[in-house]
Write a protein that binds this DNA or RNA. Structure first.
Length: 421
DNA sequence: TCTGGGGTCCTAGGACCC
DNA sequence: TCTGGGGTCCTAGGACCC
């Protein structure tokens, strides 16, 4: 039975979020920077036209931005996450079958609407989202996820399509696939593009025509699936219920290099705190915490990179346990005399907290731990992340990441509401 | 001076077992 | 001591995604 999927996403999503709350930005090029104000991760079409590339370090384009009047923002994930939720609320008024794929992309299952004028429905979807959230979008339609993604890409690249491309019919695919570079196909990255070029496969149409066995030989099962998907044979299911996460990490570059162990312990404690919040929010626990730290890969400082894994006596999501493990790991791999620019903690093999086995002798009263952590989380939700950090008196945080150009959290912080008048 | 932060999946190869 | 053909499980690393 054939499906019809839509992929809808926000155009230059982070930039569009900034524009929603500051109309002055509508006529100007806008970029949003990564964490620590490191590099450009979102650009409006005007910014792209100035030659600003995805992932370009900000210090290399700072002059250009000043000269051309580019509006530059630190990333404001609280705002973007809230806008994302609003967009998905709009999608669900069209169909309950929504897979949230990323912060700005969702797949919608429109199979129940076959026979309806799907492009007209896509136009309605776009204009409703625009009206209710202010975010401009593009919609791709296709019988498989890969084709819906490709259609969305075509809609973005061809303004005359007014933000909608429909690849549900074979004739449309025959017309468009030869015009799309194979590197623009979902799942085909630079390594695969290189391998395919050597056998003369350069367009999406070429890849669709490749015998699946050959694709498997060259690119593994992922390549083989992609060939089938491009032919309209669905291999990737819609995931309406998000699968349980397998891992969880908190890693950050520092605003200023760390050279003292005490500062490193502060930093990994802060990451462990954040990690605890993430685990508890998902009802998960971990049995071990990996810690890593490294020096810069971009300068001539002496290099050092290390990681270690600390086992917990029992699976936990208690911030105090995570901080203890993170500090122990950091001490284990710490070396004096280096300038560390980044560190992080990684937790794999997560289990559901409710399934955590209970040891014979509990190191800590579990009921009390759950109550205390619940209280910490609710206070931090109310007053902002970091309002309470267990055992954190006197944190100086010279190492904390920079966000020098962050816009107000318009939608989620009362004191940062936009002012009218 | 200044270069992000998360994730997932797959494969190859080693350790171990019968 | 060596010889063999499988299994399974685990880990590291590659590739890709947003």
């Amino acid at each position: 039975m054939s499906r019809t999927l839509a992929l809808i996403d926000g155009n230059s999503f982070y930039c569009s979020c900034e524009r929603v709350f500051d109309p002055r930005l509508h006529t100007r090029p806008v970029i949003v920077l990564s964490n620590n104000d490191g590099c450009a991760v979102a650009r409006t079409s005007e910014a792209k036209a100035l030659g600003i590339k995805m992932g370009e370090p900000f210090f290399k384009i700072a002059d250009l931005c000043k000269r051309e009047g580019v509006m530059v923002y630190s990333s404001n994930y609280t705002l973007y996450g809230d806008m994302s939720a609003r967009m998905n609320d709009v999608y669900r008024t069209f169909t309950p079958d929504v897979e949230i794929y990323s912060i700005d992309e969702s797949f919608l299952d429109l199979s129940g609407f076959t026979g309806r004028d799907l492009p007209a429905m896509a136009r309605d979807l776009r204009s409703t989202v625009r009206q209710w959230t202010g975010i401009p979008t593009c919609v791709g339609l296709g019988p498989t996820k890969t084709l819906a993604k490709l259609a969305n890409h075509i809609a973005k690249k061809n303004p005359e399509l007014n933000g909608i491309c429909d690849l549900t019919m074979p004739a449309a695919r025959e017309a468009w696939l030869p015009r799309v570079a194979v590197s623009d196909v979902w799942g085909i990255g630079s390594a695969s593009t290189y391998k395919l070029a050597r056998i003369g496969v350069t367009t999406a149409a070429d890849l669709a025509a490749l015998p699946p066995r050959e694709a498997r030989q060259l690119l593994s099962v992922i390549g083989e699936r992609t060939v089938f998907e491009l032919r309209g044979v669905s291999c990737l299911a819609l995931e309406l219920v998000p699968p349980q996460r397998k891992g969880c990490a908190v890693t950050r570059s520092f605003g200023a290099p760390i050279t003292a162990l005490e500062e490193m312990l502060e930093a990994v404690s802060a990451y462990a705190t954040r990690a605890g919040e993430k685990l508890r929010r998902h009802g998960l626990a971990t049995g071990h915490v990996s810690v890593f730290m490294h020096t810069s890969a971009f300068n001539t400082d002496p290099r050092y990179s290390a990681s270690t894994t600390v086992e917990l006596p029992e699976a936990s999501n208690d911030t105090r346990d995570l901080i203890g493990a993170a500090k122990r790991g950091a001490r284990r791999i710490w070396k004096d005399g280096y300038r560390f620019v980044k560190a992080g903690i990684i937790m794999d093999d997560l289990i559901r907290a409710a399934d955590a086995p209970r040891p014979l002798f509990e190191a800590r009263d579990r009921e009390q731990s759950v109550k205390l952590m619940g209280a910490v989380d609710s206070i931090n939700r109310r007053f902002g992340r970091g309002a309470i950090v267990p055992g954190s008196a006197g944190i100086k945080q010279r190492w904390a990441a920079r966000f020098e150009r962050r816009s107000p959290r318009y939608t989620t912080r009362l004191e940062e509401l936009p002012l009218v008048g």
